[in-house]
Design a protein around this nucleic acid. Sequence first.
DNA 1: TTGAAAGCGCTACCAA
DNA 2: TTGGTAGCGCTTTCAA
Lengths: 348, 348
Amino acid sequence: MPYVMVQIPNSAVPPTPPPRSVPTSADVARLAGVSRATVSYVLNNTSAVRISEPTRRRVHEAAKELGYVPHAAARSLRAGHSRMVLMPAPSVPIGPLYSQFINELQWALSRLDYTVVQYASLGLRGDEAARAWAELRPAAVLVPVGGIGPEGVAVLKRSGARAVVTLGTERIEGAHSLLIDHAGVGRAAGAHLYARGRRRIGVVVPDEPGLRVFSKPRLDGVREALDGTDASVTVLPLAYDEESAAGLAARWPELGLDAVFAFNDEYAMLLMRALQDAGVTVPDDTAIIGADDLVLGRLLRPRLSTVHIELPAGRDLAELVDRAVRNPGAGVESHHVHEATLVHRDSS
Amino acid sequence: MPYVMVQIPNSAVPPTPPPRSVPTSADVARLAGVSRATVSYVLNNTSAVRISEPTRRRVHEAAKELGYVPHAAARSLRAGHSRMVLMPAPSVPIGPLYSQFINELQWALSRLDYTVVQYASLGLRGDEAARAWAELRPAAVLVPVGGIGPEGVAVLKRSGARAVVTLGTERIEGAHSLLIDHAGVGRAAGAHLYARGRRRIGVVVPDEPGLRVFSKPRLDGVREALDGTDASVTVLPLAYDEESAAGLAARWPELGLDAVFAFNDEYAMLLMRALQDAGVTVPDDTAIIGADDLVLGRLLRPRLSTVHIELPAGRDLAELVDRAVRNPGAGVESHHVHEATLVHRDSS
DNA sequence: TTGAAAGCGCTACCAA
DNA sequence: TTGGTAGCGCTTTCAA
């Protein structure tokens, strides 16, 4: 273990106070001298029923004294539904762009009074994951990318999910789909490099399998843009470490590339450094373009060209979810996220 | 809205198949022609009871046909406990170091058959957050940093949490505490800069309030290391954008600093670029050191000195949680995470 | 204004 | 080997 015990041997601590069991609303009722119904009315501010002020006070005091906290599972079991929005937790560290987006989204959903929960379904494949999510009976499920198919959507809907929203490159049957145009990112990059006179174009594809969902359509986009031209596309596998980058840079002369689309700005930075260390001049020998328009791209020299992609605003997506939850009967919608736009700086 | 509807107007879709209600184990029992008890035995592989093979088959088939998925809330209500480990979702994009750590941890806990859930408690302050978490009746709660106090821990324990583990700079009464030595990071940086002959030392403190929990102890560490010496410490507030960095760099001559500890590698990169653009030479005019030992530090020129900090391995932490859950009566433990170690490269 | 009681879906005890 | 059933904690209808 990389750490070291430092304090409080087990025996030095009073063996936990009398393992008094968790207080329930019945306990509160007993202590306040009222019925469980009254407790529920008071604590939920039920407007259909008027409770006298003294009673209210007694209930609140009893609840506070016992440290009563309602039991969400019991409540939603009784209610027959929950206000939980479930998202699978990303299984690989996703970049700052998506972290930011997820935060915004969580914030917006909280404002709409949803309980947002990221569920780690690491081992699970396809439908297994959907089933695991369904066990929690969420009101809505928001799948960032490629983690679900039509059968998964069906499982969730059958078990009461009022909305399934996917966020990715393709439309999923039965789900609201937000289509992010990753292919468009590749197209923009490819077209730009071509327009700048480049013809032998490399495309970085991260080794990280979790990034495949992004890298595949981006690569396809480059191919599309260059299809029917005299330009060639070379796939360049790359791990996110110096050795891998140096290895790639060492092969640069034999590859004979005059441009590279580096998947995103972070990989672009990695590769650009390795190329520069190997004596390749950017952009004269080889042009480089990244994607995602991160801050770090502006800090590089030469400044990094990139493809900016607009993710849906957290608020808008939260509203889509809310609409879908409130009106699950309505048809499924598909939206296209704004197009990718090219940001030309000095590296291309 | 930054996106555009593209397909399937509401009216073009069959208004969702008859909103058949969610199948329960009773439905499965009915279809299979057995009792609910038998269904439960079969689906849970209850070993204390032997069910005939034909019956098992009938139950499994019925379950599959109905698309039955058990209801987690009902189950844990009945069981009186859950295997949920709850972590608050970070409210600001936390760096790659912590993302990586959280992933590892989730993986390790999944292996131990826990359901790991990140809960977004964005609006909530202090005890409110603890109460919200307690409503879910998690078996354990893992609070990455400064998001809980002793009262919060008490609330959670009262409502059945068998373990509360904190991960931060200080020990919290009643919780298992993993102490990460952020002050040690600052101390290492400060001592290093002093040893390199620097005396007028700046310390970057990010404007981002969510990073305060890290930046405060790191700053304190620098002060500790320099206390009683002839060196001075200057606090440098900085936002993570180019303008803020350029503004700071413009004031550099009047600040007269010969070294700066830049909070972490990302802020170091930002500041280093701004300083270089302003004509400040690194490390001759001003030494820079970062922290967290990210890949990007090795990609800068000069290569960035940094402070490496070893986070607990996900597996070890998962085992600590498991131990605590299985034996909640035992005393609370505090552990020190490994010390910060200095990585000297070219920027200092 | 308050209380009694049913029932959400599930599991586990006890009987058959 | 299988079924009946109580009860987990909560809300809500109906009566008092």
